[in-house]
């Protein structure tokens, strides 16, 4: 089986400062990997560099996705190729309705993947079907994208985008942040519904809590820009009990 994503000795600089210092990580199709780590360990940097955020420079190493060099692609090309980042803090876009945004994004990705564009009627039918299970109503879709959305609404909107764009690799960056238990359950159910034997997920989180809902196949501990420990899902419980400090010192 060939890997979906193969990260080798990845070094990344942001603003001239090295944040990631040699990451090695391999995801096979259908696997869910959790990356846990304390604040400042490089978790968000890893998610941004995979999505192609400007200013996150790969200085060494490689990211091979579906056999290609991911770093050579623009962010929209990565999306078309099936990479999706669910943002920790989704950006507010005043004046652009969520509906307009969704239709533009979906049709851009469909065209890039060699599929036909959806007209308004078929698009609406599809969005409403996907939105329903996430408790997203028409009123929310008519509002400007993420503007004035609650924490829960933002994360549900991210999950809806993921459902529509059908990625091969979904990166969830601190999806649990800003959510109460009820909101977390809705979002997690939405994410779990998207788990397939082909789709891989990289779940980035500070707390073990999220992993009760989205159960990973593997857990990696990120500290100081390196993965210091990897293991089965039980590793997350170890973090919960003894904290990051113990694991970091064990690994050192």
């Amino acid at each position: 089986m060939s890997a979906l994503l193969e990260i080798k000795d990845l070094h990344v600089e942001v603003g001239g400062k090295e944040i990631l210092k040699g990451i090695n990580l391999t995801l096979n199709p259908g696997e869910v990997h959790a990356v846990m780590g304390p604040n400042g360990s490089g978790k968000s940097t890893l998610s941004y560099v995979l999505a192609g955020r400007p200013g996150y420079d790969v200085t060494k190493g490689s990211i091979i996705y579906k056999g290609k060099d991911l770093a050579a692609l623009a962010p929209n090309e990565r999306a078309a190729a099936g990479v999706f980042l669910a943002f920790q803090y989704p950006t507010e876009v005043p004046g652009v309705t969520t509906m307009t945004f969704l239709k533009t994004a979906l049709n851009a990705v469909r065209v890039a993947r060699g599929e036909e564009e959806l007209d308004a009627v078929r698009f609406l039918r599809l969005v409403r079907e996907k939105a329903k299970s996430l408790n997203i109503n028409d009123d929310m879709l008519k509002r400007p994208l993420n503007v004035g959305f609650s924490g829960g609404e933002k994360k549900r909107a991210e999950t809806l985008q993921m459902a529509l764009l059908e990625p091969s690799l979904a990166i969830l960056d601190e999806t649990d942040s800003g959510l109460d238990v009820d909101a977390l359950r809705v979002v997690a159910e939405g994410v779990n519904a998207l788990r397939t034997p082909e789709r891989s997920m990289l779940v980035i989180t500070h707390y073990q809590r999220l992993l009760d809902y989205i159960v990973p196949d593997y857990v990696h501990i990120l500290a100081g820009g390196r993965i210091v420990k990897s293991g089965p899902k039980e590793l997350a419980l170890e973090v919960e009990e003894s904290g990051y400090a113990d694991i970091e010192s064990d690994a050192a």
Partner: peptide, 21 residues
Amino acid sequence: FYLMSRGIDEKTARALLVAGF
């Protein structure tokens, strides 16, 4: 970047943003 990460090309992303403004 947010709009591009959803598959929208840079030119369209800028146009959307400016129209929204």
